[in-house]
Each structure stands twice: as structure tokens, then as C-alpha cells.
Amino acid sequence: MTIEYGVGIGWRPDIAGYVDRLPGLRFAEVVAESVPPEGELPDGLARLRERGVTVIPHGTRLSLGGAEPVDPARVAHFAAVARQLDAPLVSEHIAFVRAGGVEAGHLLPIPRTREAVDAVVANVRRTREELDVPIALEPIAALFDWPDDELDEGAFLTEILERTEALLLLDVANVYANALNRGTDPAALFDRLPLERIAYCHVAGGSATPDGIYHDTHTDAVPPEVLELVAELCGRHRPPALMLERDGDYPPAAELTAELDAIAAASGYPRVTP
């Protein structure tokens, strides 16, 4: 993605009316599994496409980090949705969501081992065979690590990106959450990643539980520390797009507008709000 799209938002049916009324919007993302592979698009999405907004399908259920090969039916759906949206790229996670036929119900971390890197690389290759466009891979927020990690996060992610030739979807809130929970410096990871490979960024909110663990909830406000990290990242290498990712407990429009404007301010991109 060489075009600069600026500030975007994750499209969800619950906020479709709000997203419709963002005059400057050029970029949005939709959960791939929620889009029909053929026929009519949901109303709000069709209107976005009609006014020229680029819409990226964001997969959540492929389980690219699973030891088992990706399910061809899921890959076919993912590829069909990308064509349906005429998307210039797609995205998925470096994570697994099922194993041994059991659904985890969430994105789970994979061990940072050579064996796990091989599994991801093989699954990304299987997925790309069906895709007409590039894929961007997103490192997740993980509450725990595996006991047998061989690589640090920077080396692990860089090796996956190099071997898959994939782009990077960097979730700044995930970087923040992982660093906070591990007691490390979030900006230090920026030094270890190929920032020029960032296709776009997620920016999301979270909250800490009483036990001091920070949860990347997507249902809370974006903390100021995450916005500072956005500014830090953009100071080093500004990604072509950054989007607000909200997945529930939707606040009033004014609050969404304030968050979008804050991302614009932190990144130096123009506002997209009315």
C-alpha cells in the first residue's frame, strides 16, 4: 500500500451510520468472516465502496499460526471477500484460534520457535495461493508467553515477514499492551521491526484489571499512552494508514470523533470527521 490513506476506522454494523457520515474517510476495515462472499454487500459497506472508500477484509478465524493446515473453505471465503470488496490487500493475525478440532474463541499466541515460524510460513503460503492481493500480518496482544520461546519478538516477527514476504499490520495498542504486561519498553520494538513494511496500523483501547494486567479490549477508550506511541512511531516512519478499532460498548458519536481526531493529531494526518 503506497497510497497514503490517513486515518480510518474499523467498520462494524453497529456504527455503520456513524462511519457513513465521516466526510474525509478513505480507508476502513471489515471483519472478513462477516462479509458474504458473493451477492449484495451489507448496506453500509456498499455505500462506502460507492464513495470510493478502500475497505480491507480483516480475517480473524484462519488460524495461520495453527500447526494444522488452514481450512481451504475458510481461505476460499477470505479470497472471495477480497474480490467482492475489490480490496488492494487483506490482513490476518499471527495467532492460532483452534487446535485438535476445538475452537479457542479468541486469538492465541504461538510459541516463538522455529517450528512455529515454519507453521505460519506454510499457512501464509497456502493462503496466498488463493489470494490476488498481498496479505498483511498482525502480531497480537498476548497475555502470556509460551515456555519454550527461542526467539525474541522482534526476531520472530521479522523472520515471519521475510519468509512470507508479507506486509505488516502493526497494532500499536498490542505493542503497548505486550510491553506493559511484560515490563518492557514498547518503543524498543519499533527499532526491531521493518517499519517500512507496515501496510497500516490498528489503534485501540483497553483497560487494566485490578491484578494489574492490561487487557486489549477494543471496548474501552484509547489510552493517552497509546496515542503517544502512535506519535513516536510516526516520528520514525509514518505508516500509510492508521485506523481506530472498536469492537463493542460503542460510545456516543462525539467520543468516536474525539478518538479519530486524536489519531489524526498524533499522526499528523488530516481529520476525517465532520
Binding site: A99, G100, A104, P111, E115, A119
Partner: peptide, 11 residues
């Protein structure tokens, strides 16, 4: 194997 370990964690 990775598959067994992932399955054990999910369980």
C-alpha cells in the same frame, strides 16, 4: 509436537 501442545493449551 506443536499440534499436540496447541491442543493441550486450548483444552
Amino acid at each position: 509436537s506443536l499440534a499436540d501442545r496447541q491442543a493441550a493449551l486450548v483444552a
